[in-house]
Write a protein that binds this DNA or RNA. Structure first.
Lengths: 340, 340
DNA sequence: TCCTGGCACTCGTCATGACCGAGTGCCAAT
DNA sequence: ATTGGCACTCGGTCATGACGAGTGCCAGGA
């Protein structure tokens, strides 16, 4: 026997019913709620087959079936149809995001919007430093021996670090450094920074070279530390609504969400924008997320994604709806950043 | 009958036992576990009195007593003794915070540390702009009609905003603006900014005055929007450990924590450092926090607090321990910022 | 060959009721 | 004012049994 169209249709019906009712679905109610053209008995046979193949499972003997991770995977890959956003939803995205005044604001607004639209936990990553270019570098004289290095990128990120100077500097020397640093780096892609930094000391007077070296070191350090680092989270409270979906507690999930590294793995690692990625249950490497699914996508104006954003929820989630929302917000954020 | 010493002692014993066992405490076990010098029957009489006065309550008829919010309040105000931190704890604070490279890092580390030490939800507010002074203002030429305004404060905060220009500017004009703005504001307290901004246009050439006006407007806007705004949160996962303490779900608590405004009310509104504030259960204005207590304190080097930090947990928390931890971290953060 | 109706069986849920024990309030005695 | 004793209350636990949703299997029909 093979996985024919009707069996797929049965699987889709099971996923849809289970997602909306949160209860194991039986053959009878399935026949009632969907136009499958066959009797419950036939559906039972199909369900037995689907269970054998691992697409659905029974929580206990005399219960209906629920989809397994493998079942959701099949659903997402082959069965789900794009669910267009409603007009009010589109409008919400527009009005919500249009008022943003800067990058922080864009990120904050989009993460909240996403949480609200999907009623799940939303994550938005700041544009990766490694994929941004330098817009300006500023040096601020803090004291004789300390300089503040401020990096401003074309994506709107601002990073700062204190630099301990090997020797005291005058205001004019700081100016010389500033000019040289900007001449060497402004407009450059930060991915190329290591190479550029190499040649910086040559651009200044002999006595400033050691200073320039430590400046370069601090800059590279900052890039390494902060490169992908920042993310913003919203909608954790939504986890409690689906608390029943998690065996025991939501504790492991909350814990995983507190780990930046984990979040970045979830959302990051994205090359091209607008290719959605869905990770379902067991597909996660992190144990605490075995009962969750993540829908993520890259955003960014051009060919290459600047960073990622996405949504995390119970494996039993409305995949089509979530996928549309994530895609729509990403597209809009991309446009917004390009406009800047 | 009055609230004599023994009754207070009984109340303290009830609070301590309940906090450590999480179970209503009865007269017999109280007599066993504490040296009160009287029999259970006497304790029962005292407990009846304490209940009449509203310091303790019975969850149901045949159960022991648990402290009410009023009981905790009395405990905190008159009964709790300072519990010094253990040596490992002190060491943890030191090593954990000493490696911080900048303000973001300090805040991130301290909020995690606090969450870890108290095993509760920790909140740290960034130094309030209104209580910081300008260290430097930078103007970056983005395009003909757009300028990036970067504000760097003496507390290490960096805020940036895009300014739409009324007219195109050359690089030298930007330099003139930069000089004027810094001459007028560097070193000034941001609380005084409105007055200072008034006089800025007079310091530049006639044709730059409109630009300076919009620059000033944006600066004041930024101050208003961002003044107290930023906070960092950690340890939300700790809420699930004490999930049993919350009737129903932790949903309302998580929701309250997502509201920046609420957080700021909790942690902010602090004038002098090192005066701990404890808010217990019903004392909260926000309904979602009726089952939680918040221990907060201001931090900062001098007389005036820069901002606040604190901890949120179930009303049934270890007040003395939490209070010591909060106080210790605040003191250390204050020192750290002063050193910068 | 595929579909269908029927039937026996499984097992989780819910309501019931008995029992246990922790804890109380009250009272008489010290 | 304190204490020991005692009757009483009531929530938690456990065993029981009825109920019903859902299944797998099988024989008959298209």
């Amino acid at each position: 026997m093979t996985l024919d169209d009707r069996k797929l249709e049965v699987l889709r019906a099971i996923v849809e019913d289970y997602v909306s009712t949160h209860e194991p679905v039986g053959s009878k109610s399935l026949a009632e709620r969907h136009v499958l053209g066959v009797s419950p008995a036939t559906i039972r046979n199909d369900m037995a087959f689907l269970e054998d193949e691992g697409y659905i499972a029974q929580p206990h003997t005399s219960a209906g079936r629920i989809p397994t991770d493998k079942g959701y995977r099949l659903f997402v890959d082959r069965l789900s149809q794009v669910k267009p956003l409603s007009a009010p939803e589109r409008r919400a995205i527009q009005t919500f995001l249009d008022g943003a005044v800067d990058l922080d604001d864009v990120v904050r607004r989009s993460v909240r919007l996403l949480a609200q639209l999907t009623r799940q936990v939303a994550v938005v990553q700041y544009p990766a430093l490694s994929r941004s270019a330098v817009r300006h570098l500023e040096l601020v004289h803090l004291s004789d021996s300390r300089l503040l290095l401020v990096l401003i990128t074309d994506t709107g990120r601002v990073e700062q670090r204190v630099v301990q100077l090997p020797a005291a500097l005058g205001e004019d020397q700081v100016a010389e450094l500033r000019t040289a640093v900007n001449a060497g780096l402004t407009g450059r892609h930060l991915a190329d920074a290591p190479a550029q930094v190499e040649s910086l000391p040559d651009a200044v007077g002999l006595e400033l070279r050691p200073v320039m070296v430590s400046l370069g070191t601090v800059l590279l350090e900052t890039l390494a530390e902060r490169s992908e680092e920042r993310v913003m989270l919203a909608g954790t409270a939504n986890l409690t609504r689906s608390a029943l979906d998690f065996p025991g507690t939501i504790h492991p999930v909350l814990e995983a969400l507190e780990e930046q590294v984990v979040l970045l793995k979830l959302i990051g690692e994205i090359e091209t924008p607008s290719t959605l990625r869905v990770r379902i249950g067991e597909e996660h490497a992190v144990a605490g997320l075995r009962d969750t699914s993540v829908v993520s996508v890259g955003y960014g104006a051009g060919e290459q994604a600047l960073a990622g954003l996405g949504v995390l929820g119970p494996t039993r989630m409305d995949y089509p709806g979530t996928m549309s929302a994530v895609r729509a917000v990403a597209r809009y954020v991309g446009e917004l950043l390009a406009r800047q």
